[in-house]
């Protein structure tokens, strides 16, 4: 019997989910204007690849959906896509230098826009209870269609957030001791 994930990948995913749950809290403790609720997903993507990261994001939001807000559960596909795209970028060497990391986070953001915009626009009518709602309302008022306003807002908010998350995850993985990095096959792609 060969399971889908090795036990080590399984424990890594559990750590990634816990990072997602705890580090966002740290950002709000420091009063930083970002969610960074995907750093754990990025770390798993860098160390164990797209599939493990996809599951990490998905499970994070499902747990959150029950613990803190049903809104998070509705956005579970978004969290999954972040993991998938970040993992594919890492496989392709997208975390080997600073410019590549920035490019990878741009790709992740674009994927987020594609998946998050319909959820936000159709399921929630554009508002999710964050400061970004103001931007949606403002753009709407200036005459944009709702879908356009939402897509623009999602892009703007997520670009900052995903660049910061990807950079933090990259710095963290690069800073790992060699003894720890050697345990994960994906770490060789990160420099």
């Amino acid at each position: 019997m060969n399971p889908l994930f090795s036990t080590r990948t399984l424990t890594l995913m559990s750590a990634g989910i816990a990072f997602n749950m705890v580090l966002g809290q740290l950002a709000s403790m420091l009063k930083l204007p970002i969610f960074i609720d995907a750093i754990g997903t990025f770390v798993v993507a860098l160390l164990a690849g797209p599939l493990a990261a996809l599951v990490t994001g998905l499970v994070t939001n499902l747990i959150w959906g029950v613990l803190t807000s049903p809104v998070a559960a509705a956005f579970a596909p978004v969290a999954a896509v972040i993991g998938l795209v970040a993992g594919l970028c890492a496989r392709a060497g997208g975390f080997r230098s600073l410019p590549r990391v920035l490019l990878s986070s741009l790709l992740v953001t674009l994927a987020v826009v594609v998946v998050a915009t319909p959820i936000r626009a159709y399921l929630f009518g554009g508002a999710t209870g964050s400061g970004a709602d103001f931007v949606v309302a403002y753009m709407n008022a200036l005459g944009s269609k709702l879908l356009e306003s939402v897509a623009f807002t999602v892009f703007g908010v997520n670009l900052v957030d995903k660049v910061v998350s990807a950079l933090i995850a990259w710095l963290l993985v690069r800073g790992l001791p060699e003894r720890v990095r050697a345990q994960f096959p994906g770490a060789a792609q990160v420099r």
């Binding site: 090795s6 036990t7 080590r8 399984l10 424990t11 890594l12 750590a15 816990a18 990072f19 770390v43 160390l47 963290l172 800073g175 790992l176 001791p177 003894r179 720890v180 345990q183």
Partner: peptide
């Protein structure tokens, strides 16, 4: 993060 990731192998 470093503390938790160093433990991942041992947990497994």
């Amino acid at each position: 993060v470093v503390w938790t990731l160093s433990d991942v192998g041992e947990r497994a």
